[in-house]
Amino acid sequence: MNDADQQPAVVPTAAMNSIAIEDLTQALLSLDRLTAKTLLTQSAESLMVPALEQIGAGWERGEVALSQVYMASRICEDIINQTFPSQITAAAQPPRIAIAVLEDFHQLGKRIVSSVLRSNGITLLDYGTLKADELIQRTLADHIEILLISTLMLPSALKIKLVTAGLAAAGAQVKVIVGGAPFRFDDQLWQEVGAYAMGKNASDALAILRDMSSENYHGNKDCREGGAQ
């Protein structure tokens, strides 16, 4: 066995880091603040996204616990908050995204998703807990294009149907992405409530948003289940 066989993962990681460090060094030496910040942001995401994706996959397999998912998302958000505060406080850029809990006071799922998205530079409005009619009104008033809804209880999950129907009746082209325990136990429920997609974990939500961004979500993309496609 040669050296490369013994350390298959370390060499490319070190090489990638080495290139990033050299680029950053040149940007700093050139006083190119914008490039330096961009490189730092990219570096953070290149490490953070795969780590959070692995954590999400571990949660799906039952190998990672909710407390670990929560703390990992909090740590990432805190680091990004401290390192790049302007990224968090910047005004929302298109597409306009909001997140809410429907009718429950259990906020953990929403908080994890918010942390993961904000850690990755995605700005979003946090509506807290709202009833269906309130959520429709806020979504319309804020011209939201992508609405993330978290639920814990089955009755709340079923009420998402009121939201999707209400938004459609108002002529709004809002893509509703759903998540939470009821959807984990019934993989057809998200379609029943008229959602555009379902995320089984926070990194699913991130992947869905990135897919929508890269494929121009304004098109007629089919609905999908997060993590399955």
């Binding site: 909710l66 929560y70 906020q107 953990l108």
Partner: peptide, 15 residues
């Protein structure tokens, strides 16, 4: 404590 504090605050206290 999930109902006393909420999940997030309970995790913070527990950990």
């Amino acid at each position: 404590p999930v109902m006393q504090l909420g999940f997030d605050k309970y995790f913070d206290v527990m950990l």
